[in-house]
Amino acid sequence: MDAKPHLQVKNLSVSYGTTAALKNISVDIPDKKITAIIGPSGCGKSTLLRAFNRLLEDGDEVSISGQVLVDNEDIYDPRNDITQIRKKMGLLSQKPYPLPMSIFENVAYGPRIHGIKKNRMDETVRHYLTIAGLWEEVKDRLHEPATRLSIGQQQRLCLARGLAVEPEIILADEPTSALDPKSSQKIEAEFKVLKNDYTIIIVTHILRQARRLADYVLFIYLGELIEHGPARQIFENPQHEMTKEYIQGIIS
């Protein structure tokens, strides 16, 4: 691999109660690339993604072992500030969940809680809505409740909201699965631009989407990382039998 890794996973295991969801995962995620996590339903894709910004601890009875290093710092080190870690990663979930406030406030929420001064807020909000490709559509209705937007617009709003805290990494869990094809295309196009500045990790069960977007691919099966490598290699010349079958649609 030419670029140096942005995020390193070392011997990460996660279990919910007694059921193991991830088994001893070790992998490097390249900097400023789109990495796709693929695998059949229930294999642990979301779990892996949520392990990256420590959202797993939120539920009870979750045990986590191993390390996740961001810029060579272990995010699970108890001395680290969880809010600062999460600030480094923007999360885009499967369905958009706008906060119960106006469009403007949704984007301003992140900067506000991190203590950014008010006077530059208009500019900040405009900037991130523009990056998310939403500004033209909402510039006249910034103070309407965010829930009035269409689902596709809401998802881009969530993207803008996440970008506004200036993360380094974007974590996206099936970000287009609730969207119509047109909106999905917009989000995908957005990602292709964003990868110039951000490291993007996307969970998807749509193989064609992974082909279109990914530079790097992880294939997970039943909690184990079966194979990982540059997208071209995984899709055209998978080394592992299981990966081959999954790519050909034999197992799903």
Binding site: E73, R79, N80, D81, Q84, I85, I113
Partner: peptide, 9 residues
């Protein structure tokens, strides 16, 4: 990233 005792904490 180290923990600090800020107002919000």
């Amino acid at each position: 990233m180290k923990k600090k005792m800020t107002a919000k904490k």
